[in-house]
Nucleic acid binder design. Structure first.
Lengths: 143, 143
DNA sequence: TATTACGTTTACGTAAACGTCAAGCAATTA
DNA sequence: TAATTGCTTGACGTTTACGTAAACGTAATA
């Protein structure tokens, strides 16, 4: 039985040894394998292969996680691809550091605006809820 | 006159008098008239008519604003419709106050999670940016 | 050996959210 | 009066993000 030890104390290669199958990831993140393959088709993930079968590393898993976070924030896959590129380019020889700083600023502004929207909406939910509770109390006390 | 007092100094009719054309709103919010009509088609807005021409009140405008905010937060038009219904039902005779409180809670959880996502992303942007700036400094000092 | 589980590619289908004509009415302006 | 401007209602086209089915390979299990 050739099982690899997990949560290993030492790592020979500096690359993590965890590997995931497509269905493992699908189950973990509650998405379909179709979706994962689609993300690959759009260049968001590039898992290795064993024959034809996809094999996902810890890095692939992180990228998938970021993809899903981006989706929750309402970004399109294309936008998410750009963001992931920024993450990746961060240590590459881009030579366009200023351009990248601008893009970062842009991204930050977007997120801050979105957070403001959320805070506004949460505040309004508070108002609605308190009015709901008032009506609920009124119903109780009128019994 | 059993009217609730509103924030306005005088109001003859309790309905505001501002009217907007579809292109006015389109220009104000930088969307197309096609989009606005589409929102109407999906029941998100129901402007009055003068003949066949749509006439938008201040209330319609607010709803449109909420629609766009919802879109920025990544909600589908169907979800936005539900949210708007909650806003509207708030003073209606729903008789399902508890159900509505549950939906409010749900909505709140969604938003809080989204805000957490944003905070996570903003933190990571900080990291990337500082590394960018380090590289930029390195380039300058190596000249 | 047959079934089951898991994987693959290819390809057509679909819902959402509009974009983009087309054709026509109504009012103002040249 | 002719043209322009703004509005209307269809209706078909498009993009995104997958769903769904077909047809197949492989490996473990009953």
């Amino acid at each position: 039985m050739l099982q690899r030890a997990r949560a290993s104390p030492n790592e020979a290669d500096s690359t993590d040894k965890e590997r995931y199958s497509i269905t493992q990831l699908a189950r973990e993140f509650d998405i379909t394998t179709r979706a994962i393959r689609f993300y690959e088709d759009r260049g968001l993930i590039s898992p290795g292969r064993s024959g034809t079968t996809r094999i996902y590393t810890a890095r692939d898993r992180v990228r998938l996680k970021l993809v899903l976070r981006g989706k929750r924030l309402g970004f399109s896959l294309k936008e998410i691809a750009n963001i992931l590129d920024m993450y990746a380019a961060e240590r590459g020889e881009t030579g366009q550091l200023q351009y990248m700083l601008d893009r970062l600023e842009e991204q930050r502004n977007h997120l801050v605006k979105q957070r403001d929207d959320i805070d506004l909406t949460l505040a309004e939910l508070d108002v609605i809820e308190s009015q709901c509770r008032q009506r609920l109390n009124a119903m109780v006390s009128s019994n």
